[in-house]
Each structure stands twice: as structure tokens, then as C-alpha cells.
């Protein structure tokens, strides 16, 4: 579903992506780990055609994202690290707009309110202006927007950043269910525990390269931590 082949992206002298190869099939959840500046966000941005790669290709459902930018974006839902919304509108109004843009049809408000309460935003909160929201509340609306799209693949860039532990664990459940429904998920995270718990595959990035790539069942949590630190120190 999501596939990177020899993907390379340079910013001047720094290679943010250095010949990355990875593949996420339906029903899989690929967790990308790596230090700050390793290139995780860059990889997501290339998949969204926000950045044009200098080499290699990224494919979504077999389509090259550079050549089919719009079609491929229709197939994926995206949650950025900082979900940014229109402050003058309510959470519900924001969700309604983005969902209509994504699906091409207006969803009934009841449905959207239910979706928001699924991600932990109750009715009073969702009818308040977003400018009064905390970061975590905005993140929840972002999750609802992604869910409303009912996409076959998810591109998540530290989606749980700012979420309280309860919301984060509910989000993990949500992802697990999506994965079981056959959605392909590529997510970046700094949370090794979360990666081990919900991911099916784990990759470690370092200075633009994928230095490790394994199935999460093959490793215990402590092993993962040791491996990660070992890569970081090398």
C-alpha cells in the first residue's frame, strides 16, 4: 500500500532521506523511530507530495506520489505532529469542513459529534471555538478528521504528541482496530513502548538512513530499547 524505493531527499548538503526502502502492506503498522532531525517528517512529507524527492520514488497503492499527487492524497489520511485548525471555528465546524473536503459530501452533524466523542472530545468541547483548545484537544480533532476520511492508509507524524495517557491509549486502540480492518499505517514516534505495543513493524532512522527494520514480534521491549540506544550512540 505504502512503498518507498531508494527514496532520497537532500536539503543542501544534508541528506534528510538517504536511499530509503520500506513497504507497508494493508493490515500493517510501521513505526518509524529516530532522533530529532533523522528525517522522519521528511519521509511523511514526501509521501504527501509536499516535498519532491531528489531520487527514488514513493508509491501509494502503486501510484507514484509525485506524478499523482492529488489521487494519492485521496487514498491516505494524515495527522501532523501539530494539528492546525481554524481558531475562529468550533471543533465540529473544523471537522465538518475538512471531512467534506476529503470525502466530497457533507456528513450529518450527529455523525461528526459521535466521531469527536469517540476520540475523547465531548459535545460541549466540540462546540467551542478551536482558539480555546489545548494542543491535545486540537490533536483529537485532527484524529477525528483523519478517521472521517475512512482512508485505506494513514500517515501519522507523532500523532499522539500532546495527548494525555488515556487519550493516547484510546488512540492506540483506534489504530489497532483500523489495522485489523486492513488499513496500512505509517507512523513516526518517539515512544518506544507504544511502537512495540501497537506496531507490527519497526524501523529506526538515523541521519536519513533506515538503519534497522524488523518485525515487532521478534523483539522484546527491553531489546528494542537497547537496540535503539545502541544505534543512537554509534
Amino acid at each position: 500500500m505504502l512503498e518507498a524505493k531508494n527514496l532520497t531527499k537532500r536539503f543542501g548538503a544534508t541528506a534528510a532521506l538517504d536511499s530509503i526502502n520500506l513497504r507497508v502492506d494493508p493490515g500493517e503498522m510501521y513505526c518509524l523511530l529516530g532522533a530529532n532531525g533523522a528525517g522522519k517528517t521528511t519521509l511523511i512529507n514526501v509521501f504527501l507530495n509536499f516535498l519532491v524527492p531528489d531520487g527514488g520514488e514513493a508509491r501509494i497503492n502503486g501510484l507514484d506520489v509525485t506524478r499523482h499527487g492529488i489521487e494519492t492524497k485521496r487514498l491516505v489520511a494524515y495527522i501532523p505532529e501539530q494539528v492546525m485548525l481554524y481558531g475562529v471555528l468550533t471543533g465540529l465546524e473544523n471537522l465538518s469542513y475538512f471531512a467534506e473536503l476529503a470525502t466530497g459530501r457533507k456528513s450529518p452533524d450527529d455523525e461528526l459529534v459521535a466521531l469527536l466523542s469517540d476520540v475523547g472530545l465531548d459535545r460541549t468541547a466540540s462546540s467551542r471555538r478551536v482558539s480555546t483548545y489545548s494542543k491535545g484537544m486540537r490533536q483529537k480533532v485532527g484524529i477525528a478528521i483523519a478517521m472521517a476520511k475512512k482512508a485505506r492508509a494513514l500517515l501519522l507524524d507523532e500523532p499522539t504528541s500532546g495527548l494525555d495517557p488515556k487519550a493516547a491509549s484510546e488512540f492506540s486502540d483506534l489504530l489497532r482496530r483500523a489495522r485489523e480492518d486492513g488499513v496500512a499505517i505509517l507512523t513516526t514516534t518517539h515512544d518506544l513502548f507504544h511502537a512495540k505495543q501497537t506496531g507490527t513493524h519497526i524501523g529506526i532512522m538515523k541521519r536519513g538512513s533506515l538503519v534497522a527494520n524488523f518485525s515487532s514480534e521478534t523483539l522484546s521491549h527491553t531489546d528494542l530499547e537497547a537496540l535503539y540506544l545502541q544505534h543512537m550512540q554509534a
Binding site: 504527501l48 492529488i70 492524497k73 501532523p80 492546525m84 485548525l85 475538512f98 473536503l101 476529503a102 500517515l155
Partner: peptide, 8 residues
């Protein structure tokens, strides 16, 4: 980014 990621 939020807008464009919707595929418009």
C-alpha cells in the same frame, strides 16, 4: 498542510 492532505 491540513487542507492539501485532504486531496484537493
Amino acid at each position: 498542510k491540513m487542507l492539501l492532505s485532504q486531496g484537493i
